[in-house]
Design a protein around this nucleic acid. Structure first.
Length: 394
RNA sequence: GGGUAGGUACCGAAGUGGCCAAACGGGGCGGACUGUAAAUCCGCUGGCAUCGCCUUCAGUGGUUCGAAUCCACUCCUGCCCA
């Protein structure tokens, strides 16, 4: 391991808040590998760029020789972290959660070194607890403590319901730290409260308290809310290169510096041309989860398709309508949306797209929803801003 | 348990017997413009369809020629009291 002070500095880089830096230094000075905890809740099957912020930090610890412990919150996910939430989360069954947990792990290893990561499911300990154990655990914290959280407060102030089980969440997350005897816990800034509960519980158990290391939270594509799959503003780490590149290009200029800092771990230079900088960001991130070659291709495709608007030359998915399908615009488009992009759109939806001038066939706008396309020789059918197919009649 | 205020489309919020597929705002989508950025302007935003038809206003049942609107019961939520 490198000298502690050097580690200290590099580990602090990119953090939003660390409680406390002094404690971290002291822990590092112990000269032993630290147990570094990062918890993820498999509430959806995919990991997105927002998750990678914490994962990268964990990876950094790994590379410095520390022990990375990835907690898969199979039990906590059934409650769902109320952090930053204005409503109770929908219930997930344990089966659903375990389903997600599989893909989660695989995807997390796109960042982490699988050889050096211990993966723990918190159902391992929570699944064994009796109601008595739960009560005992609950008696260690006060309701007032739990209600200090701003997300609960806010809901209470607004007259929205806060379910009793939701206040279990921080306690459970805290207990995870006790079980694994964490030295450091990583999390987004919205995790501060939960992580501090962990410290309290550790203290009560006579353990050394974990250092709370908070990382900034990545904003989603809308530029407003935090990145989250359920808000539809996320970039998944398994998305195909074209999709990933395209989504990253849609972020606003203002957001770019944030993405540079949190995802590329560098500062966006002020002189950089915004569009070039964005392309470079998109290309580098795409390369990270795919390959440089695929990323370059995604970039070229993007330039061809959206900058030069040359759909003819673009690499579009090919689509062969079944022979018995009517060749009117609506039927064709609806079928193509469904078959090629997996989007179920109603015929009314398509009608609106057509009337709105979004659909074009062989480069010509079709605005008549009743128009019949003779598919002779095939051609490019543009459906909406992002979707187009190359029709190959059989 | 008692009292009280509510439950309307993705969200917020009007509407309190016919003119309601339901105002308005936000969000979303599409178009023009552009750098798939921002800003701006315009259109769309339940389903099917050639007038039109069908399914919606927490749920069920009722009153009525006609109900989101009235009545009954049920479910759900807030607040106050216990």
């Amino acid at each position: 391991m490198s000298p502690f002070s050097e580690q200290h500095t590099s580990l602090l880089a990119g953090c939003a808040q660390v409680l406390s830096e002094k404690e971290l230094a002291a822990k590092l000075a112990l000269g032993r590998p630290l147990k570094v905890k990062l918890g993820v809740d498999p509430t959806s099957p995919d990991i997105h760029l927002g998750h990678t912020v914490g994962l990268s930090k964990l990876r950094q610890f790994q590379e410095l020789g520390h022990e990375a412990i990835l907690i898969i919150g199979d039990f906590t996910a059934m409650i769902g972290d109320p952090s930053g939430r204005s409503a109770t989360r929908p219930h997930l069954s344990h089966d659903q959660v375990m389903e997600h947990a599989k893909t989660y792990q695989d995807q997390a290893f796109k960042i982490l070194d699988p050889e050096k990561t211990s993966v723990r499911f918190n159902g391992e300990w929570f699944g064994k607890m009796t109601f008595q154990d739960v009560m005992r655990l609950n008696s260690r914290v006060t309701l007032q403590q739990m209600l200090q959280r701003e997300d609960f407060r806010e809901r209470i102030d607004k007259g929205l319901p806060v379910r009793a089980h939701e206040i279990q969440y921080p306690i459970m997350q805290g207990w995870d730290s006790v079980v694994i005897q964490a030295d450091v816990e990583l999390g987004g800034t919205d995790q501060l409260f939960n992580i501090l509960v962990g410290r309290d519980l550790q203290h009560e158990e006579g353990q050394h308290q974990q250092v709370a290391m908070m990382l900034p939270i990545l904003t989603g594509l809308d530029g407003i809310q935090k990145m989250s799959k359920s808000l539809g503003n996320a970039v998944g780490v398994t998305e195909v290169p074209g999709e990933m590149f395209g989504k990253l290009m849609s972020i606003s200029d203002e957001q770019m510096s944030e993405y540079y800092r949190l995802l590329l771990h560098e500062e966006l230079s002020l002189e950089a041309h915004p569009m070039e900088a964005k392309k470079s960001l998109a290309e580098r991130l795409t390369a990270r989860f795919h390959s440089p070659a695929e990323a370059l291709r995604a970039r070229e495709e993007f330039e061809l398709r959206f900058s030069k608007k040359d759909l003819e030359a673009a690499d579009l998915p090919s689509y062969s309508p079944p022979p018995d399908l009517s060749t009117d615009v609506i039927s064709l488009s609806a079928h193509a949306f469904d078959n090629v992009f997996g989007l179920k759109k109603s015929r009314s939806d398509i009608r609106r797209l057509v009337e709105g001038g979004s659909v074009s066939w062989k480069g010509e706008k079709i605005t008549d929803p009743k128009a019949d396309l003779s598919l002779e020789g095939g051609g490019v059918l543009k459906l909406d801003r992002k979707s187009a197919v190359r029709v190959n009649p059989k």
